[in-house]
Every structure is written in structure tokens, then in C-alpha cells.
């Protein structure tokens, strides 16, 4: 039994195909989706996304939040991952991610006391995106 997986962003379809299982990090913890899962709608964290393809290989990707939607129609399970940005491990620019991480860290440390709440949140999100990319690519 396999699931039909679509990873889409507003700009493109990042990946689609059939898979054994999908592992993602939701707002309330890790979750794995296998065929026959009940319908589900989860808000995702900025984190790596793992897809086990039919051959058993693991495909790594990264999502900047978004949603994971599980539906089933006539016994077939379908998983849609919707994110503003998503990249496959092979597409990640590791160098750029490292620079991004450092910049976000500098922003957080040097201005921690003076930054407004919104700026802190955006710096933290930047950091999370960079860290997720590094761990997905590594």
C-alpha cells in the first residue's frame, strides 16, 4: 500500500509521486503518514520533510511551515504538503543556508534587547529556515 504525495508551493510543484510513508514535523510534534491514515489537516513547522519512496529510499526535503493535508478517496490515500517555500535536499544551497544562519544568529544576539517583537520573530524564523535546510541537506 502506498500513498500519493504532492509537495506544492505557489510557484511550482516541488515533488509528486507515490511513497511508502511521509514523515513531517507538525505544530504539535513529529508525525508519520502511512497508507490508510485517517483524514488529517496539520499545520507544519519549519522543518525537514522525509518521504520514503516506493523502493524504500528516503527523499529529504525542507518546508517553511505550511500545511499537510491527508485525504482518502476510494481507499487511496493522498498527502498534500502545501508550503510557501519548499526545496528538495538536492536543491538546497548549503553555503547560502550557512550564511543565512550566521546572519540570523548575529541579528538575534547583537540586538536581542533592542529588537521589536515582530523583528525577533522574523529573525527566529530565518534561523529556523536556515537550520532546517542545513539538517535536510546534511
Amino acid at each position: 500500500m502506498t500513498v500519493e504525495v504532492h509537495v506544492v508551493t505557489p510557484e511550482r510543484e516541488v515533488w509528486s509521486g507515490t511513497a511508502e510513508q511521509v514523515i513531517a514535523r507538525g505544530a504539535e510534534g513529529e508525525l508519520g503518514i502511512l497508507a490508510g491514515h485517517v483524514p488529517l489537516l496539520v499545520r507544519l513547522s519549519i522543518a525537514p520533510l522525509r518521504i520514503q519512496t516506493e523502493g524504500g529510499d528516503w527523499l529529504m526535503a525542507v518546508v517553511d511551515g505550511g500545511f499537510l493535508h491527508v485525504t482518502s478517496e476510494e481507499g487511496r490515500t493522498r498527502v498534500d504538503v502545501l508550503a510557501a517555500h519548499a526545496e528538495l535536499a538536492g536543491e538546497i544551497d548549503l553555503q547560502a543556508a550557512r550564511i543565512r544562519k550566521e546572519e540570523a544568529e548575529v541579528r538575534l544576539q547583537s540586538h536581542a534587547t533592542r529588537l521589536a517583537e515582530a523583528e525577533m520573530a522574523s529573525a527566529r524564523a530565518e534561523l529556523a529556515k536556515a537550520v532546517a535546510r542545513i539538517s535536510a541537506a546534511g
Binding site: P10, V38, P39, L40, V42, R43, F67
Partner: peptide, 28 residues
């Protein structure tokens, strides 16, 4: 309506994120 439908976090919080995203998609 599916009896076992799961939402994580609750439907209200999900909607909080879905609806702005929906508007942004319309603008896009």
C-alpha cells in the same frame, strides 16, 4: 463529513493560518 477527521492544532487555529494564506494566494 468524516467522523475521524483530525486537526492539529484545532480547526480554529488552522483557519487562522489558512485564511491569510488564501488571501495571499489570491493576490499572487
Amino acid at each position: 463529513v468524516h467522523a475521524e477527521y483530525l486537526f492539529e492544532p484545532g480547526p480554529a487555529q488552522i483557519l487562522d493560518h489558512l485564511l491569510p494564506q488564501y488571501l495571499i494566494t489570491k493576490v499572487y
